[in-house]
Design a binder for these strands. Structure first.
Lengths: 355, 355
DNA sequence: GCAAAACTTGCAAGCGCTTGCATAACAGTT
DNA sequence: AACTGTTATGCAAGCGCTTGCAAGTTTTGC
């Protein structure tokens, strides 16, 4: 009937409410905003009217008028099509915490997997003032792009590895320290052939490896490529790689996995191959996802404080919104010791085995 | 300097581009939209200008003018504060698939945990025309509210249990069938004391329990409350509950858990208590999260086809956007048999144990 | 009983973008 | 040279909401 299909807006508008209440739009607007400028009884009447008609303010119009969005874009640097699933609970938890933290500040979360620079839609749509700021959850293989993006758009916070150059505000766990703690713990337990499982081309993983190397060297060992196994980040991939682990046979007596998911996959493989954990192989993960404590044996891991991270990122972005220019920060990594590492090998000789 | 702080819009606007290019806003708008109405060279010039100035259309203004949002709100019915974390990979996967499916249709995803009816912000903000439609991922304890919401807002799709009454378009796995398959499988394996772990006050879980009961009755057994253990959905809670499992001692020889997370927690508990899986206790989960295949022993489970579910929900909501009124649908549940159930007990007597 | 000081409300001008319609520019026909 | 098509551009209205300012209505003070 009308010119454009899109124009068939059936939505009830503020004007309708105004008409029904016999007042002007201004008054309705103010009433809904809880302004003191509107008489108590008028406000109540309008509120009631709005409620009964299920009226809802059009956020776009509102944001346009207000020049804000009250929305933060949360971005996963996942290569679409390549890495099909996220699957790693770390991400869920992070998103959940982020939503929590942001909605505390009355911000919505726009979730996306396609980074701004990948937009190929012909013509329009570069970024888009659809959000007041953006949070990158992890850098993936796009450290450079993110850094550049952060430079152009003032309101950007990134979770990942950083602090090196002007990459904007980067928040992350102290991965180097985390890796160091993990490896040092295994060494202290008497392990000598410690394999590293992870994809070192990812900035965060690389840092964890760095820490691992530091611990090894500190103990007088030299990290070798033979013990560095390039496990992809997604669990199916991790499984595939670690399937061959038993072929390594006696070559390693411990594993430091770059993520809990990888650790779990490796553990399952080893167990299936008949290896005992921690007796034959000790395992340490990274993240401390909820499941980690509930494996058998429970997984020793390096905890990333996700809640704190989310809150910190939120705080930073709020500060940026206020015009400040906050620096990145590093959250402490904490080693959570559980059964998957067992007691020191020396003690083991005497007593039976774990616990 | 200016009146309101919010008015300090530093953002470059279409007018700026127009001015710079020496054309009108209309032309810029059309050029950016790839309209045929604008001369090739003009378009190129404008595009180049836009790129170099990092100009981005203001989506709010655009959507306002267009009367659309190109956004779908995805809602988790999580009680904020109560159930702190989602943690269940099922949700991540679902969100990831949803993002994928929706962005294929050029829709953004607005993620939220606070349902529209919970808004308590005084005055304004009821729902908000911030999205063209909403998808509920699970019903939680809000089946009624969701149903009512769906009735008022035409564009709503829900994942969960449904089909009973006018709850709008509900998509979900055939939970009853899934529960039935799981229990029947355990029975066929010779198990007789099958415990059910899950919170039956949740619609979906209740359906799974229903299927479980059906299988039991079919085999001439009567489901009893003694074997029904009310495990919460989140993993820590599940762990807490199942910690006492070993006290049940010989009381059960199998477990059907309402989700993989619960199953994993139960498995870890049982293993820690010295029980062998599947020899002493067979375990079946529900969901087939990525981890399920990578446990030791690998978890037998009922697969929910998340990708298909996400695509179906997306298709439904797109249809609704076109004015159609699609019906809900039930996706088939599929039993994925892995090691956590082992071979039939009868065969077991003869050979050693599993695989 | 009247002016001044509250209180309420409405007007109208935007917010940045899209688009129907009018207009200008420039061929291509007779 | 006048006329009709095309094609490229601009005008201006409008999307639904907010808000400074002005106007109207009470209430208060003396």
């Amino acid at each position: 009937m009308s010119k454009t299909a899109a124009k068939d807006r059936t939505q009830i508008t503020m004007r309708d409410i105004a008409r029904m209440a016999g007042v002007s739009e201004s008054t309705v607007s103010r009433a809904l905003a809880g302004s003191q400028l509107v008489a108590e009884h008028t406000r109540l009447r309008i509120l009631e009217l709005a409620r009964s008609t299920k009226y809802a303010v059009n956020e776009h119009a509102r944001n346009l008028a207000l020049g804000q969005t009250r929305t933060i874009e949360v971005l996963f640097p996942i290569e679409r099509g390549t890495l099909q699933r996220v699957s790693d609970p770390f991400f869920v938890d992070m998103v959940a915490e982020l939503i929590d933290a942001l909605s505390t500040h009355d911000y919505d979360v726009l979730l996306s997997t396609s980074p701004p620079w990948s937009e190929v839609r012909p013509g329009c749509a570069f970024l888009g003032g659809r959000a007041d700021g953006v949070i990158f959850v992890g850098q993936g293989r796009h450290r450079e792009e993110i850094a550049e993006f952060a430079r152009d758009n003032r309101i950007v916070v990134t979770w990942g590895a950083g602090g090196r150059r002007d990459e904007g505000c980067v928040i992350g766990t102290d991965n180097v320290r985390g890796g160091y703690l993990a490896a040092r713990h295994l060494i202290a337990l008497g392990r000598r052939q410690i394999a590293f499982l992870g994809d070192c081309t990812l900035p965060e993983i690389e840092e964890r490896y760095e820490g691992y190397c530091a611990a090894l060297r500190e103990a007088g060992m030299e990290p070798g490529d033979a013990l560095r196994i390039n496990a992809p980040f997604d669990i199916d991939g991790a499984r595939t790689v670690t399937v061959g682990l038993d072929r390594f046979g006696r070559h390693f007596d411990a594993i430091f996995a770059a993520s809990d998911m990888i650790a779990m996959a490796a553990m399952a493989n080893l167990q299936a191959a008949g290896a005992r954990i921690p007796d034959d192989v000790a395992v340490v993960g990274f993240d401390d996802v909820a499941m980690a404590a509930h494996m058998h044996p429970a997984l020793t891991t390096v905890r990333q404080n996700i809640a704190e991270g989310a809150q910190l990122m939120t705080a930073k972005i709020m500060a940026m919104l206020q015009g400040e220019k906050p620096k990145g920060e590093m959250l402490p990594a904490k080693l959570i010791i559980r059964d998957s590492c067992g007691a020191p090998l020396s003690m083991r000789q005497e007593s039976g085995d774990q616990t």
